[in-house]
Design a protein around this nucleic acid. Structure first.
Lengths: 231, 231
DNA sequence: CGACTTATTGATGGTAGTCAATAATGGTGG
DNA sequence: CCACCATTATTGACTACCATCAATAAGTCG
């Protein structure tokens, strides 16, 4: 692992306050692996063997049931996934696949659970991280139950614009097919939702989306801190 | 508080492994209050001041945005709510109101956070409980995104039947209006979903639902362990 | 370049939301 | 206990949103 990657992981909220020894143990026990795009890293229903940290690339968390599939979230560097399953020693609820060439650190679940007992600061960080994930999931339930497809897209665009520097140009980091699944609609419907937003100053050109009327889009989207904010 | 109530709370996964002292501190610092039906106990957007334990009665967790409202979950005795907001010292994402005459133990958030640091067993239980809540929320996202209204109703009925003793008779514990909101549809649509399920042996009579063709209902509902199971 | 995947657009059907009217239910006060 | 009233539940008609199917266009990658 490159030193700057180790530093980035160390700086994650989950590891920032951990003791040096705890962090060292976890990273030493972990495997850093490289994967090409499109590789399934974990399968729902499998027992949770590793905590995963996306060091580089892009990972899609998705779930299936009865032949249908939906994207739950996108994990960018440096982010972790499936902490909950690891902690309670359960099966994964979600599958994960790489969307790009990616580098993933895999830490044995047993090590994570052990560290919980020996490092109170780490335990506290785990609590914070879990609570954050829980609240994110509740927000997503609200997003799905209280908004239409176009509303979800509009709010996603506004949020993504801020994340990318509020330049008014959003770069979709992945295929529209994936975005549609993340937003809970079909690809066809996403196209139509984009058309609907054209009147609100949303101009799509390939993977680039220009927001030319932020005010108007906000009026339409009606962002809600209790759904769209990070905290 | 009646001794049997204290015992029931002590037996909650969240408190079962806590030290006697921790548990005593928390309960002594708490207020046990009685509320009539329809009282709003907490409001989304308010800072999280208390961890709530439903000792008796029934509490609806719900959320609003832009004039729309949806039920997120129903908390029965003995269950807790809004642990995540309490732990991270944040505002509530959900509101809570009593559906029946209820008795609620309110434990100051500060006490809970303090106990986290002094009682490792309690901290471990908090981690488990948070992970459980997180996974429940992810399952609800899957339920909403992967299933139709009638599918959600069918699976809810099957699950509720098991909870109530698998007698084939489900007693709705609250108004259909609330159930419809919990399942993510309008009351009118819930009525129609019940009609749809009549062909699958679902007979509604007021608050009682008789399942006369469990096999057929299962074939229609296609329950999924990764959505419908408790763990 | 050519084959394959992804994106868009149109046509159509189904699922769900809204509005309105009526029936059933439940709580309250007499 | 009953009558009354307010709320809830159901049903119908209509509309809006979304999924599916199909065809074409646009990218992408070997």
């Amino acid at each position: 692992m490159r030193p700057e990657d180790a530093a980035a992981i160390r700086n994650l909220p989950l590891f920032r306050d951990a003791q040096e020894e705890t962090f060292g143990d976890l990273v030493r026990a972990g495997f850093l692996q490289r994967f090409p795009p499109g590789v399934v890293l974990i399968n729902e229903r499998d027992p949770a063997d590793f905590l995963h940290v996306v060091v580089e690339g892009l990972v899609e968390m998705f779930a299936t049931s009865e032949g249908r599939e939906t994207t739950i979230s996108i994990v960018r560097p440096v982010g972790t996934f499936i902490l909950a399953a690891v902690l309670n020693d359960q099966v994964y609820l979600q599958s994960a696949r790489t969307l790009e060439k990616s580098q993933v650190l895999m830490i044995p679940a047993e090590m994570v659970r052990a560290a919980l007992g020996t490092d109170p600061a780490f335990a506290r960080a785990v609590v914070t991280e879990l609570a954050r994930g829980y609240r994110r999931a509740i927000k997503e339930v609200k997003n799905q139950k209280l908004r239409s497809g176009a509303g979800r897209l509009a709010n996603w665009l506004l949020r993504e614009d801020v994340i990318q520097g509020a330049s008014g140009v959003v770069n979709l980091g992945f295929e529209k097919r994936v975005l549609s699944s993340l937003l809970g609609m079909t690809p066809e419907n996403l196209s139509r939702a984009f058309s609907t937003l054209r009147a609100r100053g949303v101009a799509v050109q390939g993977a680039q989306v220009r927001l030319t009327d932020r005010e108007g889009l906000v009026r339409f989207a009606r962002p809600d801190l209790l759904i769209d904010s990070d905290e």
